[in-house]
Design a protein around this nucleic acid. Structure first.
Length: 269
DNA sequence: GTCTTTACCTGTATGC
DNA sequence: TGCATACAGGTAAAGA
């Protein structure tokens, strides 16, 4: 499930692989979900960047291509194989002048590709958690009126852009905060600790190329390795690596949430 | 307006 | 083996 570290990894790899290439053709195969854009081609790819969980390809003459991988989407580069047969889950293909291609693969068809002008705003996205703007003060302001569970706030892309289920659980464990704590009841110290934890967890995950638990793959088909560093996510019944407590799974906002009931206590407010 | 639940979607695991 | 069912979760839309 691509979250910020996975999307950042793909963005960096794509940047090395396709910036400077000339896009000569773009084909959509899943016409029920995506429309064929009106594009004047060829155009050169001038940059690949990330905002939240979006991957953005900028062309020299515009528009830009906004890709969201959602649950099972993936981007794969193929050298000299732009004429190769299409896999049943391939949803779109970018063809380049040199004969190479970029494949958009998505089993569950949640992923999106949108072409829009660079200056056209993205859906409202919150603070980038790895930017300077993500301070304890700024985050505290965002949470101060929130009566929802802190985990739901972490997953709210309008507040913070890029965190998904895995890294929300890992960050809350690192900060010793129960996922169901009401966001507005966090102390200044706890908010500071959570900001530190989010930054730390995301940075470590990027260093390891993200987490490959099920579907996520890098652009050459390789895996990330942060799944080996997970402390709680997917470890129901296992021992807490900090206190030895038994990791529990509960549902928060309709999502499976893993935590240690011993060192992430639900505090009375 | 805020928060929670549901729908979208398909492969995989489980139980009968 | 074959079928039914539950589950995974990012996001938008519907419902409370």
């Amino acid at each position: 499930m691509p979250e910020l570290p996975e999307v950042e990894t793909i963005t960096r790899e794509l940047s090395r692989a396709i910036v400077g290439k000339k896009l000569s053709k773009f084909s959509v195969f899943d016409t029920a979900k995506m429309t064929q854009p009106r594009l004047v081609l060829p155009q050169r790819i001038i940059s690949v960047r990330r905002r939240g969980k979006f991957i953005i390809l900028d062309l020299n003459g515009g528009p830009s291509c906004f890709i969201h991988l959602r649950m099972t989407g993936g981007l794969f580069t193929k050298s000299e194989q732009s004429n190769m047969a299409r896999h049943k889950h391939e949803r779109a293909r970018f063809y380049f002048h040199d004969g190479s291609a970029l494949i958009f693969h998505d089993v569950r068809r949640f992923g999106t590709i949108e072409w829009r002008k660079k200056e056209q705003p993205l859906p409202q996205l919150g603070i980038e958690p790895l930017s300077r703007q993500f301070t304890a003060q700024a985050f505290g302001q965002l949470l101060k009126n929130k009566t929802q569970a802190v985990k739901s706030s972490l997953l709210n892309q309008k507040l913070i852009a890029g965190i998904g289920n895995i890294y929300a659980d890992e960050s809350l464990w690192s900060a010793k905060i129960h996922p169901k704590r009401i966001a507005s009841t966090l102390s200044v110290r706890e908010v500071r600790e959570l900001v530190r934890a989010v930054r730390h967890v995301l940075r470590e995950a990027i260093k390891k190329g993200g987490s490959t638990l099920r579907d996520y793959r890098r652009i050459d088909g390789g895996s990330g390795s942060y799944q080996k560093s997970r402390k709680v996510y997917g470890r129901e019944g296992g021992k807490c690596l900090r206190c030895g407590g038994k990791i529990k799974r509960i549902r928060v906002g309709g999502r499976s949430s893993y935590f240690c009931p011993v060192c992430q206590r639900a505090k009375r407010v």
